[in-house]
């Protein structure tokens, strides 16, 4: 019997009668991570990793019915043994390990291989069946070491300072923004955050993740000379809005795995594209799958068809799961309404 099946409400565990990251409201949900397309409001009960508690409550409401479990600790529910293991994607992100009648399944949610210092690094978990994402499931997606990307961002910022221009960096406000803050050279100049980013910074700091001091962009006046040296972290939805006017002459950039392709870079219409993703690249996906030792692989959101075919050619029993997860590397504002902006 399959431990997890795809249902219209989400990925479902029949033995335990609960859903993993459901996209429609259900009674019992187990959540891999707090991105809007994986953690939605309206469920009767939530179970998640302890590390994700702050962020889940900040996004879904302080009063959600949430139970948490530290990474690695086991809980048995209706005979299903359940535990969370770091996925290295964003703060609190977890793979969910399920064991029932000697069968072990792991649902990865979203994951990234390279440790980034803002969340517990990815840990491979042995299993019989692995449910993997496939956001960047094509061989063209191979990431450089992040230190190289941060060096590029620093250089761009420095060059803008030399020209007296503000540096506006667009990125996903939860996860990517904090990873960038953690990784850049804070000595170069002042750092400002957009109202959608600042509250999340607070959650990261409360969780003990070091982020350099940031100013709330709304507190800085238009034409303040400080802007000419500043790095501004903002969600992609702020681009092209009137919010941008306050920065005067600025250079803009976008950080996402999709920036690997020239076409997406150009379509984005920003001055620079930085290839930085919170998902595994192609070698990363294959490595992670191999590490689990799984013989069966269920592929969710992304390049399902490609990854399934490739794994089958390598002798694995692979199939696709259709899900309604989105793309947190893009400007997916519809999936992201959950946190209030700071009022100026």
């Amino acid at each position: 019997m399959d431990l997890v099946i795809a249902r219209p409400e989400g990925l479902y565990c029949p033995a335990g009668d609960f859903y993993i990251d459901p996209w429609r409201p259900v009674e019992r949900s187990v959540i891999t991570h707090a991105h809007g397309d994986h953690a939605r409001t309206g469920n009767g009960h939530y179970l998640a990793s302890s590390a994700s508690e702050g962020i889940l409550r900040a996004r879904l409401g302080q009063d959600i019915n949430l139970q948490t479990l530290p990474y690695g600790q086991r809980l048995t529910h209706q005979g299903v043994t359940l535990s969370f293991h770091p996925a290295g994607h964003v703060l609190g992100s977890a793979q969910i390990r399920l064991e029932y009648g000697g069968e072990v399944w792991v649902a990865s949610g979203d994951y990234k291989i390279e440790p980034d210092g803002t969340c517990a690094p990815f840990e491979p978990v042995r299993c019989h069946t692995f449910i993997t994402e496939s956001t960047f499931g094509l061989p063209i997606y191979r990431w450089q070491p992040q230190a190289q990307v941060f060096a590029e961002i620093n250089q761009w910022w420095q060059a803008n300072i030399a020209l007296g221009k503000a540096s506006v960096l667009f990125c996903y406000s939860f996860g990517k923004a904090q990873r960038i803050l953690h990784g850049i050279d804070e000595t170069l100049g002042p750092i400002l955050s957009h109202g959608a980013v600042e509250p999340l910074n607070r959650v990261y700091r409360d969780a003990g993740v070091y982020l350099p001091p940031t100013l709330y962009a709304g507190d800085v006046k238009k034409n303040d000379p400080l802007l000419r040296q500043a790095l501004i972290i903002a969600p992609p939805s702020a681009g092209g809005s009137s919010w941008m006017r306050r920065f005067g002459d600025y250079s803009d950039s976008f950080a996402s795995g999709w920036m690997r392709l020239r076409g997406t870079r150009r379509r984005r219409g920003v001055d620079r594209g930085f290839v930085l993703s919170d998902h595994a690249d192609w070698p990363g996906l294959l490595w992670a799958i191999e590490q689990t030792g799984a013989e069966r692989v269920m592929v969710t959101h992304g390049s399902i068809g490609v990854l399934v075919r490739h794994l089958r050619e390598r002798g694995l029993d692979a199939q696709g799961f259709n899900t309604e997860y989105g793309d947190d590397e893009e400007d997916n504002t519809t999936a992201e309404p959950a946190i209030a902006e700071v009022q100026p």
Binding site: L138, P139, I140, L261, R262, G263, V306
Partner: peptide, 8 residues
């Protein structure tokens, strides 16, 4: 498949 995704 890669070529289709990149276009160049």
């Amino acid at each position: 498949e890669s070529y289709q995704a990149v276009g160049d």
